[in-house]
Structure formats: structure tokens, C-alpha cells
Design a protein around this nucleic acid. Structure first.
Length: 591
RNA sequence: GCGGGAGUAGUUCAGUUGGUUAGAACGCCGCCCUGUCACGGCGGAGGUCGCGGGUUCGAGUCCCGUCUCUCGCGCCA
């Protein structure tokens, strides 16, 4: 018989009755009845109940073992009596009658319980991540992550994408987030950078003629963390394709995402869940800001933001009309069936808006064919009817300069969705945000800047760069959004050096600057480059969505904390002076 | 860098307008218990109330400073 196991902890059942088996695992739970002891033995696959009674010569020894000690149990599979079956376990019809056991590894008293999923302080969890990872929820999340990644790999391979590895030690990118730097020993005073994404490499692979690239790519960015943004590193399904239009990119990745979500949609949901059918809706960037106040709209929220500036422009409601004459706009959100809400509900919303920094939240109710509420009397019948309310509707107004009106409208949209319980929670709703502007105006310097990726192809190519107002030029630049989470951005790339020089010139960069900073890429484009484009959905965020976890650390095996420290490995750490000398680095004490 | 929340037993938390010896649950230790599966029962140990200062007859509680964790803003081509 095998030294450690003939079966794992989930596979024994009635078919194995009376077999002598060996299983190994962790002591998940002990139930000590004095003269009878139950041990739930746990491994990656499941739990098997083992039982021993006081007549056994090792009864006292085994009773004394700490939880999470690792043991091997040898014993006979016996049937449980009908009244002692545990239907919540796959092995619940049987148990192992312990003949012999071996202690493989003892456990000290635990700093956190493994056999329960109750919430624990993150520093304790991160310091003892190996224990945290044994716990059911996190263990399952990591298995889900594996399932998703292996499924992605298969789907991409099946679609003739070729998997690559690209350098981890590379050069710093002058645009974008802060880089992690690695000092060079051989070239003192020079630094490698960890890639923020394999952006240039995947484009170079297209230029090298590989046609379709993908990678489960680690990306490193030295940014401050958020609940959905782990400091240090994260993973993308990075892909790129040659000889494609934007539509081709969409059509290639939509079925992959759809299938991944279909396969795993019920992992965290009790109810049957729906996934957007492809093709996913495409929302132009400007329209998204107008209708949702955001470029990552949560389409599970049915509320739409309307523009009512024209109605208020010439109204007697001076607060709004005066602001409009100073350049403000009026946004409004119509909510149905608000009649049951008491007056205090509207007052509370107003107070909420003030706490959020707005002057208030004006509203009109249309109940019993009458317009009510503090603003209604300031509008003419004609103006009120243009709002287009049905009986039982309320409309809430936001009036501010366009940028702030959009931002606050998005907040109000979320708030109303919560208050009226409108969110379609058992759904994964995708959309593309398309037609991002190529350039934007920097408010501080009043200069034209790239609004997104400088290597995206402008729509209309050289002709629009030459002839259009830069602020009117759109790029072949797109994001994919699911349930209000930005999964990725992508683009059709600029593969023409002439267009690139011109695009950078508009943003104030000389030909010399482009040549000095992007020489590798630029040279490659001069030897025959195919038109190409791609995108890079975030793997961690996909797993987060499917696991229904609000925090990205719940889907990463070994995440850093918010201060970008690994509490278990104690990184970052000081290094010996000798190592610094080798690298030519002298530390400066800033105090 | 900035703002919100939190920090009390190994752990998760409670702790009233400042007032006796700071509590509960889980875990740990001891005793009892042969059908539990969150086993149960009895008993016990375990605390610099994050740290430093201040107000007060008296501070877990109020004030100031500081540190840590967390959420957000800035940042994220």
C-alpha cells in the first residue's frame, strides 16, 4: 500500500466499503466524546470523517493532536448508519475506522482558525498566508483562478493564438505609471525596469510575423493600491492580432470572455445568473459620460442620466438658469414608482447630496397627474411636459459645470439604484467603451496631451491629424467593462512612423524625442509592420467578478498589503552594504 | 502627500454620561462524556485597552501627538 495515500479525502464512498485504505491530510476538526473521537481529515479535495474509540491503544495519543497537524490514517471504510449520514459531504455516507495512524507534521496553536471562514484581520491573514490559503473560501478562490486561467489558455490556443514569454527585466517606459526599477550590477548607475505590460514586445511579435499573440502576462506598476488594484503586480490576458480592424478584435475576444463567464457564473451566486450575449453593446466614450457619468458604466443599474439643460435654460428657476448662463448643464435621472417614499426620503437624499459636496438634490414628482416638489412651480407646463414623466415618476436634478455634473450624476445614479433596489444582481453585463478621444486639454497648462495611449491609431489616420481639431480626433482605443469594472483597455496600434511623428508633434513632442525614447519600436516599424491591435483583460479582476469578491487580495495567492509589503516574506527588506557596493548604490538618509 | 473608519485576551468583538476586580464567543489547558459533524457539559489560564503625553480625585472612555491596518482621493500612457 502507498505510504501516504491510496485515496484522497473526497473520493471514498459506499463503493469502497470494507476496503483497507490510507488517507493523509490536515486535522480540520476534532469532536471528542471522551471514549469516542471523530476527526475530519481534510486535503485539497475534500473531507473524510475518521473515527476511533477508547479501546484503541493510541486513542489518547491521537486525541491530543492539535488541529492542522498532518497525519496519515490507515483504516477500513465503514458505512454510516442512516441517522448519522452527513449529506453535505461527498464522503458523508462512509467513515474510516482508524486502525493505525502516523503523525507527519505537528501544528502549533493556530494564529487564526482554518476550519471557519469568519473574517480576520488582514495582517494576520497575510502573515500566515499558508494558513489563510487552507481556509475554504480562499482555497476555492485560488482553484477558481486556476480553472479560469487554464480555460483561457485552451480557448486562446484553440483560436490559433500563440503563447509567448516576454522579458521581465526590460527598460523603463517614459509614459504611464511609475516603474519598478532594478539596478544593474554590470552597468553601475543604470537600471532595468519591470514591464508595466508587455506592450512593446507584443507589437514587436506582430512585426515579427507571428500573427496572433497571447500571454498570461505579469504586469508591474508602482502605484498606490485600491480594493481592486493590488500593489506591485497583476496579471492580464494580453493578446494582439495582425491585419485586424477594431471589430475583428472585439469578435475574437467576446466569445472567450462570454464562455469564461458562462462556465463560472454560478460559482458565487445562488440564483441562476446571466451573461451578456455577444456582440456586447458598444458605447462611445462621450455617450457613456453623458448617460452614465462614467467611462465604466455598470449596466446592471437600469437608470439613465438625461440632459435637461434646454428645459431649464429659459425657465424661471433662477438657480439653474443663472448657472447655465455661466456654462453649467442640467442632468436629471428619472426613477419610476417613487410614490411610496415619504417626504423624509427626499429630504434625506438632499442631505446626502450636501454631504457629498453638492448644493442639494432638486427633484420633481409626477403623482396623480400633478407635478409636485420644490422645483416644479418654477417651470411652465410646457417645460414640465418636456421632461417626459409618467405617473408615479420622480426626476432628480444635478446642475454644475459639465465635468462635475457628470461625476456627481454618476454618484446619484448609484445612490438611487441602491435606494430603489434596482440593481440586477444576478447578471454579468458587458459593454465596450469605444471612440476615446486621442487628445485632451490639460486644464493646468492649457496644452494638448494624449488622453490615453500615445501608440493608438487615430481614427482617420494622417488625414485627421493634418486637418482636424486635435480635440475632435477619436482614437481606435477601447475599454471593455463588466458590471462597472474596467477589465481592460486596448487599441488598434499606430504602425506608421509618419503618423506617429505627427501624433506626437501635436502633443508637443519633437521627432527627436520620439526617436530617443521609442527607438526600438520606431525602428521596427520601418521594416514592414502589419496593421495590428489587441487588448488585455485583467485576470485578477475577472476572477474577482466571478468569485464576487470586493477585494482583489481574495483572489491572489500571495498578495502584498496596501503598503506594498509582503508580511510573510518580509519584503521589501534591507540589503547588506556589500550588495549595495556591488551595485554602486549609496543610501541617503533623508532625515 | 491628503481625507474617512478602525486598533481592547492567541483571534473576532462588546464595553453606557469618565466611576468597584475590563466582559463574551472561538481557540488554548484540565476534568466528564461512545454517534458527532460549528458535538455537548463543568472548571481554569490568558489583558502595558497600539504607543507617548495631557486633563481629572479617577481615563479603555475626554484632549493632543504618534504608529499600524483598512477604504477612498491624488496616482493608475
Amino acid at each position: 500500500m502507498h505510504k501516504y495515500r491510496t485515496h484522497n479525502c473526497s473520493e471514498l464512498n459506499k463503493n469502497n466499503l470494507n476496503e483497507l485504505v490510507t488517507i493523509s491530510g490536515w486535522i480540520d476538526t476534532k469532536r471528542d466524546h471522551g471514549n469516542l473521537l471523530f476527526i475530519d481529515l481534510r486535503d485539497n479535495y475534500g473531507i473524510t470523517q475518521c473515527v476511533i474509540d477508547a479501546k484503541h491503544k493510541k486513542f489518547n495519543e491521537i486525541s491530543a493532536l492539535n488541529l492542522e497537524s498532518v497525519i496519515t490514517v490507515i483504516g477500513k471504510v465503514i458505512e454510516r448508519s442512516e441517522d448519522t449520514v452527513n449529506k453535505s459531504l461527498s464522503t458523508g455516507f462512509i467513515e474510516i475506522n482508524i486502525d493505525e495512524y502516523n503523525l507527519l507534521s505537528q501544528s502549533l496553536t493556530l494564529p487564526l482558525p482554518v476550519n471557519s471562514d469568519i473574517d480576520y484581520g488582514e495582517d494576520v491573514r497575510l502573515k500566515h498566508r499558508y494558513l489563510d490559503l487552507r481556509r475554504n473560501k480562499l482555497h476555492k478562490n485560488i482553484l477558481l483562478r486556476n480553472k479560469i486561467i487554464s480555460s483561457i489558455r485552451k480557448k486562446m490556443n484553440d483560436r490559433n493564438f500563440i503563447e509567448f514569454q516576454t522579458p521581465i527585466l526590460t527598460s523603463a517606459s517614459p509614459e504611464g505609471a511609475r516603474d519598478y526599477l532594478v539596478p544593474s550590477r554590470i552597468h553601475k548607475g543604470k537600471f532595468y525596469a519591470l514591464p508595466q505590460a508587455p506592450q512593446q514586445f507584443k507589437q514587436l511579435l506582430m512585426i515579427a510575423g507571428f500573427d496572433k499573440y497571447f500571454q498570461i502576462a505579469p504586469c508591474f506598476r508602482d502605484e498606490d493600491s485600491r480594493a481592486d488594484r493590488s500593489p506591485g503586480e497583476f496579471y492580464q490576458l494580453d493578446f494582439e492580432m495582425s491585419f485586424v480592424t477594431q471589430e475583428d478584435v472585439f469578435e475574437s475576444i467576446e466569445p472567450v470572455l462570454y464562455e469564461i463567464f458562462e462556465e463560472n457564473k454560478n460559482y458565487s451566486k445562488d440564483k441562476e445568473c446571466t451573461v451578456s450575449q455577444y456582440p456586447f453593446p458598444k458605447i462611445p466614450y462621450i455617450e457613456s459620460l453623458e448617460k452614465y457619468g462614467s467611462d465604466k458604466p455598470d449596466l446592471r443599474n437600469p437608470l439613465i442620466i438625461n440632459d435637461f439643460t434646454e428645459i431649464f435654460k429659459n425657465s424661471n428657476f433662477k438657480i439653474f438658469s443663472n448657472k447655465i448662463s455661466e456654462g453649467a448643464i442640467v442632468k436629471g435621472i428619472i426613477v419610476k414608482n417613487s410614490e411610496e417614499k415619504p417626504r423624509s426620503f427626499f429630504d434625506k437624499l438632499n442631505l446626502w447630496a450636501q454631504n457629498e459636496g453638492a448644493p442639494g438634490l432638486g427633484y420633481i414628482n409626477y403623482y396623480e397627474n400633478e407635478f409636485k416638489g420644490p422645483i416644479a412651480k418654477n417651470l411652465s407646463k410646457d417645460q414640465l411636459e418636456q421632461i417626459n414623466l409618467s405617473n408615479g415618476d420622480s426626476v432628480f436634478f444635478i446642475c454644475d459645470k459639465i465635468k462635475y455634473a457628470q461625476q456627481f450624476s454618476a454618484l446619484v445614479r448609484d445612490k438611487l439604484c441602491n435606494e430603489f433596489n434596482l440593481l440586477e444582481s444576478n447578471a454579468f453585463k458587458f459593454c465596450w467603451i469605444v471612440d476615446y478621444p486621442m487628445y485632451e486639454l490639460d486644464e493646468k497648462t492649457n496644452t494638448i496631451q494624449f488622453s490615453h495611449n500615445p501608440f493608438s491609431m487615430p481614427q482617420g489616420e494622417l488625414e485627421s491629424l493634418n486637418n482636424k481639431n486635435p480635440l475632435d480626433i477619436k482614437a481606435y482605443q477601447y475599454d471593455i467593462v463588466c458590471n462597472g469594472v474596467e477589465l481592460s483597455s486596448g487599441a488598434i496600434r499606430n504602425h506608421d512612423p509618419e503618423i506617429m511623428y505627427k501624433a506626437f508633434k501635436i502633443a508637443g513632442y519633437s521627432k527627436k524625442f520620439v526617436e530617443e525614447n521609442f527607438s526600438g519600436m520606431l525602428n521596427a516599424l520601418k521594416y514592414g509592420a502589419p496593421p495590428h491591435g489587441g487588448s488585455a483583460p485583467g485576470i485578477d479582476r475577472i476572477v474577482m467578478l466571478l468569485a464576487d469578491e470586493p477585494n482583489i487580495r481574495e483572489v491572489i495567492a500571495f498578495p502584498m498589503n496596501q503598503q506594498a509589503m509582503d508580511l510573510m516574506m518580509e519584503a521589501p527588506a534591507k540589503v547588506d552594504k556589500k550588495r549595495l557596493d556591488e551595485l554602486g548604490i549609496i543610501l541617503v538618509d533623508k532625515n
